[in-house]
Amino acid sequence: MFPRPIAQASPAGRLFYKIAVPVALFLWLLPLLGVAITSVRPASDLAQGNYFGIPSSLAFENYALVFQNTPMLKYMMNSFYVTIPTVIGALALSCMTGFALAVYRFPSNLIVFFMFVAGNFVPFQILMVPVRDLTLSLGMYNTWYGLALFHIAFQSGFCTLFMRNFIRSLPFELIEAARVEGVAEWRIFWFIVIPLMRPAIAALSVLVFTFIWNDFFWATVLTNSPDTQPVTAGLSSLNGQWIAQWHLVSAGSILAALPPVAMFFLMQKHFIAGLTLGAVK
């Protein structure tokens, strides 16, 4: 193990470490803590210059104000409308593409695979004008499905990389054995491979959920009204209206951050397994 386990250090060293970790964490999360505290600070505190002290009272009404005076709830619902179909769609597509690229040998296999990988890295701006145009001409501009459709297509790049590598690590003898038995290819996919892919599906769902929920660029390019804007774009336009009302900005920020944070804490193991794929081999 590297570094040397702290259990082998002197008692003073161990004590120092046990204090140093929470202190470092506190400093690391300072911006987050600041915003979290500001979100429950009464507006009167800010007016009197009490920016860092203890709030004079806990003003949960800031959150109520955000919900009552802004379309925040609608924004958050819109985000779910875009995010959930994207997770389902991208996973469905990439289970199939990953299976095709992992199991079959055919001449252009690696070329197709690397096309998915490379496409996943390109700057969004090179896609922006044509994708916006396509979405407009399909009559899907400013709709949740127009946005979700693009996300499904783009995410299938990363998901294919992930799924293909995952299926490759499965025991290939299972598939061989089934073929000898004369099992049809789609049945192999559905009854043998898919059940084994559960961990990969779980990991990718959490990851794609977070990516899409947090997307801002495509939200601004493909939507433009509060009826369809996801929470990131909504928060940005609210920020323009709430000049210097930091208690509201903070409350809105915390609300927008909540779903992915909850997702992360509930599915932590899967989330990290997804992110670190490839880093361990």
Binding site: P31, L32, V35, T210, W213, N214, F216, T232, L235, S236, N239, V249, S250, S253, A256, A257, P260, V261, F264
Partner: peptide, 9 residues
């Protein structure tokens, strides 16, 4: 895990 929009704010 937090959106860059929130980080920016």
């Amino acid at each position: 895990v937090i959106s860059q929009v929130v980080v920016g704010l």
